[in-house]
Nucleic acid binder design. Structure first.
Length: 303
DNA sequence: GCTATTTGACCGCC
DNA sequence: GGCGGTCAAATAGC
């Protein structure tokens, strides 16, 4: 694959993949067995495009990748094993001590998820703000929310909202930590598709306001937040920002590079990361494992 | 009076 | 020691 060491080209590629995935999403949601083969092929094709775009993006982000383009594919044995959540699981014993005042709860990659959205408050859950802080290197304050049922039902879910830009349609980076155990429900999901931008607002200082909980305390499922109906502005987006590829996936930075996450169930699907100058991709199973086409792409990516 | 938000302080991690 | 996540008293809104 030819690498194009041009930022605009990489962004265009990612945008095209995003539009493609978005346009075919309804078909991917078919559950009919008769559709399995076609759906699988389609999914493979889409992911192939996504991988190609990501590869280009990586080429731009890290010249080392460009230098390796066209090089022989690494042997399959060199490919890393699938990510093992248990390998980096945090110390459970620490969690209880986190109840102490001011104890900093570090982000756990197993339970945290980052998305980029125009509507940070429309995720169907009921949140209560408990703090805000100016973070170094950012133009806007970071806002901290916890599940409204934290004490009622012991839900440890929290989220942080950080405004990324002050455009007419400001984008927000939303970081979710821990999972809801409250089974709380709201009607907010009703608005996810129709009212997203209207459900939150901010001023020029990055101050975020939220609709009152009482207005949205109705039935809902615990669907994760999505940027459905939103637009990712590739030209204004920083590569340090998370990026929602589609309803199904978001791409976000982490300590190792970029991390693609399934927004459907929160499971980590694969990682594009940099570790000691080595890029790796950990594909989801079973789609990639038995697909030589995707394997070829992965071999190119895994240098 | 109840509930949500604000804001300064606290405290663990790096 | 600085940074960032959380707590909790004070305040605001209904």
């Amino acid at each position: 694959m030819a690498c194009v060491p041009d930022r605009y080209s990489a962004k265009r590629e990612v945008a095209q993949a995003y539009e493609l995935i978005k346009s075919h999403q309804p078909r991917l949601q078919f559950d009919d067995v008769l559709q399995l083969s076609a759906t699988t092929n389609l999914a493979q094709s889409l992911l192939n495009d996504a991988m190609r775009a990501l590869h280009l993006a990586l080429c731009v982000m890290n010249p080392q990748i460009s230098a390796h383009c066209g090089a022989e594919s690494s042997s399959r044995s060199n490919r890393p094993h699938l990510f093992s959540p248990s390998a980096e699981a945090g110390d459970v014993g620490r969690i209880t001590s986190q109840q102490k005042k001011g104890k900093r709860r570090r982000a756990n990659e197993e339970t945290s998820r980052v998305i980029l959205t125009e509507a940070p408050h429309t995720d169907g859950s009921v949140w209560r703000k408990y703090g805000e802080k100016k973070i170094n290197g950012t133009h806007f304050k970071r806002h901290y929310f916890r599940c409204s049922y934290k004490y009622d039902r012991g839900s440890q879910a929290t989220k942080q909202i950080q405004q990324q830009s002050s455009n007419d349609l400001p984008m927000f980076q939303v970081t979710y930590n821990s999972e809801h155990t409250c089974n709380c429900t709201t009607a907010a999901n009703k608005y996810i598709k129709s009212d997203l931008p209207q459900r939150s607002s901010c001023d020029n200082n990055g101050t975020i306001s939220q609709m009152g909980d009482a207005m949205i305390r109705q039935e809902q499922g615990l669907l994760p937040p999505r940027a459905e109906g939103s637009t990712v502005f590739m030209d204004t987006m920083s590569w340090e920002e998370p990026f929602v590829l589609s309803n199904l996936y978001s791409l976000s930075p982490n300590h190792a590079g970029y991390h693609m996450t399934s927004t459907d169930d929160g499971a980590s699907d694969f990682h594009c990361g940099s570790s000691d100058g080595t890029y790796l991709v950990l594909p989801p199973e079973p789609i990639f494992e038995d697909n030589p086409c995707i394997d070829a792409e992965l071999d190119l990516l895994y240098i």
